[in-house]
Amino acid sequence: MATGGRRGAAAAPLLVAVAALLLGAAGHLYPGEVCPGMDIRNNLTRLHELENCSVIEGHLQILLMFKTRPEDFRDLSFPKLIMITDYLLLFRVYGLESLKDLFPNLTVIRGSRLFFNYALVIFEMVHLKELGLYNLMNITRGSVRIEKNNELCYLATIDWSRILDSVEDNYIVLNKDDNEECGDICPGTAKGKTNCPATVINGQFVERCWTHSHCQKVCPTICKSHGCTAEGLCCHSECLGNCSQPDDPTKCVACRNFYLDGRCVETCPPPYYHFQDWRCVNFSFCQDLHHKCKNSRRQGCHQYVIHNNKCIPECPSGYTMNSSNLLCTPCLGPCPKVCHLLEGEKTIDSVTSAQELRGCTVINGSLIINIRGGNNLAAELEANLGLIEEISGYLKIRRSYALVSLSFFRKLRLIRGETLEIGNYSFYALDNQNLRQLWDWSKHNLTITQGKLFFHYNPKLCLSEIHKMEEVSGTKGRQERNDIALKTNGDQASCENELLKFSYIRTSFDKI
């Protein structure tokens, strides 16, 4: 039985969820670079991206490699990797027998973001014989899940209580170790020597080791999670996991709180800001991140802002960003909400898709409305799209047979046209069989910064309504002859009103 693990408890099935942008060198404390989270699957090609990484700022997932063999891993080693800020997950990587050479110096898994409450997941690794993470000293947050690894031993010899604050939620089941077939031998045991430290858990006094050649490092209890030197002297209180010299914040392997210019500090002093819960960055760093993602459509890219001495992905609820200094300031009234469309555009074809934009005031991208039916549609669209004030790209209304009016965009005031449909149009209306009105132009103002209007096959939309939009939106004169079809717009509506004058002759039985 794995020490510190839980057996036999019912657990939810383990679901495996399925960018080499360097964020800056980590400095003297770390020998390499800070790398983003990685999802490495199918083959070993991307694994080489770990070569210079000291910190993975995010998670590391290595999974679904069915053609790899043990010899493929023999020359692979990433000794610079010290810390993973989120979680480490391995799933069905064939041929991998140990992690001792792959990650010989991995010391800390912070667990800032977890995989279903777990910071370390080893699942269905069919050839893994031992973990071998002999320098792993601290899992700051989260638990361990090690399950269905039929060859995995050296679990009962690990004292997880020396690595985690609590072992109650560890789930370590259905491994070879369960069948008591392992016969784990710690260093020196074969020669009758006791080389590794022994600890007591559940009444068992057991030597602690990761492999037959690597003991588990056990520091004096007084050192807590700070770690200790090879001689057993406690590291500085700002260290986490390990250090090369005692009581020196510049000799830590990793930091308990924050890293700044080669030393570990309790908090980031001005003019620095907390970033990702582990390091200090200056304003320029946060500003660069903001600008890199301002026009990016890459998933996970955030326009970072500053709030409460932190550089964070977005302002919290009730705050909006001051564009001059990136500071989050309290909103006066309802907060603006910028919604970034991942692929640059979004099609609204149902109430469900409209709900995804609920509360958005600025759309960074283009909207395509293609709704053919739905219950209580006008009210639903207004509830979900009615706060949109600005669209950076274009607005396209296409084959939306259920629409009679666009009044559900009740606050839309600006279409920038930074991206144009077919390279020309910022407003595009095609084949809307029941569209009769755009907006009530006596109450609604709309500016279209650039781009043209396109109207074709809107049989109940009168040309007068379209011409009014040209005047109000500032697009009059931009359109070419064929942009607004004269014969297919309003051709099934009563669009022309003329005053009919009647004269009559009164007659009676005795007068003409």
Rank of each mutant, 00 (worst) to 15 (best):
I306P: 02
C223R: 01
G318V: 11
T107C: 09
K100F: 11
E168V: 14
C53G: 00
G227C: 10
E71S: 09
R113T: 15
N295R: 13
V253S: 14
C264P: 00
P31T: 14
T211D: 05
Q245I: 15
P187H: 13
D247L: 10
C268L: 01
C186E: 04
A198V: 05
N282V: 03
F123A: 15
K310C: 06
S244Q: 15
Y134F: 04
M137S: 10
D169P: 13
F116I: 09
F285A: 08
D39T: 10
P104Y: 00
G241I: 01
D248K: 04
N138P: 00
R74T: 11
G227N: 02
A190Q: 04
D165W: 09
A198T: 09
W160D: 01
L260A: 08
V265W: 02
A230I: 14
Q204Y: 13
S77Y: 14
V173R: 15
L114V: 08
S244P: 03
I82V: 13
W210N: 07
E124Y: 12
I306D: 10
I56T: 01
C243R: 00
Y259D: 12
R263Y: 01
P270H: 10
C234E: 02
D169Y: 08
I163L: 14
N42D: 06
K191I: 14
E238M: 09
A119F: 00
C286V: 08
G58I: 00
L240F: 03
T140M: 06
C228K: 07
S77L: 11
K176W: 14
L233E: 11
E33A: 04
S324G: 11
D177S: 02
H290W: 14
H302I: 10
L289C: 02
S237A: 13
T85V: 09
C264D: 00
R298G: 10
R279E: 07
F103N: 00
F258D: 01
R46A: 15
D184V: 10
R208Q: 15
Y87C: 00
W210S: 08
M137H: 10
H307V: 08
H59F: 04
H28I: 02
L152T: 02
N202L: 04
Q287L: 04
N43A: 11
T157K: 05
L260T: 10
I185C: 11
I172S: 09
F285R: 03
M83I: 10
E33F: 01
N242E: 13
K100E: 12
I139V: 08
Y154R: 07
Q276G: 07
L106W: 02
E238A: 10
T320G: 13
D72N: 14
L47E: 01
D261F: 03
K294Y: 15
I146F: 04
L102M: 14
Y304I: 05
T85G: 04
C53M: 01
T199I: 13
I306M: 04
C243V: 00
I139S: 00
A190R: 11
P336D: 13
S143H: 14
G183W: 05
Y30A: 15
G262W: 01
G192Q: 07
Q276I: 04
E181P: 03
G241F: 02
A254K: 01
T329L: 09
G37A: 15
K100Y: 05
R256H: 05
F116V: 00
W278H: 09
V126G: 12
K191L: 05
N257I: 01
L29F: 08
N309Q: 12
L327Y: 15
L60F: 02
N242C: 06
P249I: 06
N150E: 10
M83Q: 08
F103T: 01
F275R: 02
C209D: 01
S98A: 06
T250A: 12
V55T: 07
Y273K: 07
H290T: 09
F66A: 15
L332A: 15
E57N: 05
G203M: 11
G132Y: 01
D39A: 11
Q61V: 12
C252L: 00
Y319R: 03
D159K: 05
T211E: 15
C234L: 01
L102H: 01
V218M: 05
M137R: 13
D169I: 08
K100T: 08
G188P: 10
R162H: 11
G333R: 08
N117D: 04
T45Q: 03
D288G: 10
C53P: 00
I185Q: 11
V305N: 07
R256I: 06
E57P: 00
L50Q: 01
V126I: 04
L63S: 14
N149H: 02
I122Q: 00
Q303V: 08
N170C: 09
G300C: 06
P271G: 13
C153A: 04
F283P: 10
V144M: 10
G227P: 08
S161R: 06
Q204T: 14
L152C: 13
P269S: 03
D178Q: 08
Y171W: 11
T329E: 14
Q276Y: 09
S166M: 14
D165S: 11
V121H: 10
W160N: 01
C35Y: 00
S77E: 05
N117L: 05
P249K: 02
T189D: 11
E151I: 03
N179L: 07
K217H: 04
L260P: 02
I56N: 00
C228D: 05
P220Y: 05
N295K: 15
K67S: 04
Y87N: 01
H28L: 13
T229R: 09
R46I: 08
C209T: 03
W210Q: 14
I62E: 01
D178T: 11
K310T: 04
S98C: 03
P36V: 05
C255K: 00
L29A: 15
T107D: 01
Y134E: 08
C335L: 04
K80W: 07
Q299E: 05
Y319P: 01
C223G: 03
L240Q: 06
N135F: 02
L120R: 01
G227T: 04
Y134A: 08
L332V: 15
K129C: 09
N43Q: 08
S317E: 11
P79N: 04
N42I: 03
P36Y: 04
C234Y: 11
M83T: 04
F91V: 03
S213V: 06
E130A: 10
C239H: 00
D177L: 08
E71G: 01
Y171V: 11
C335N: 10
D165A: 03
R162V: 09
I185A: 15
Y171R: 00
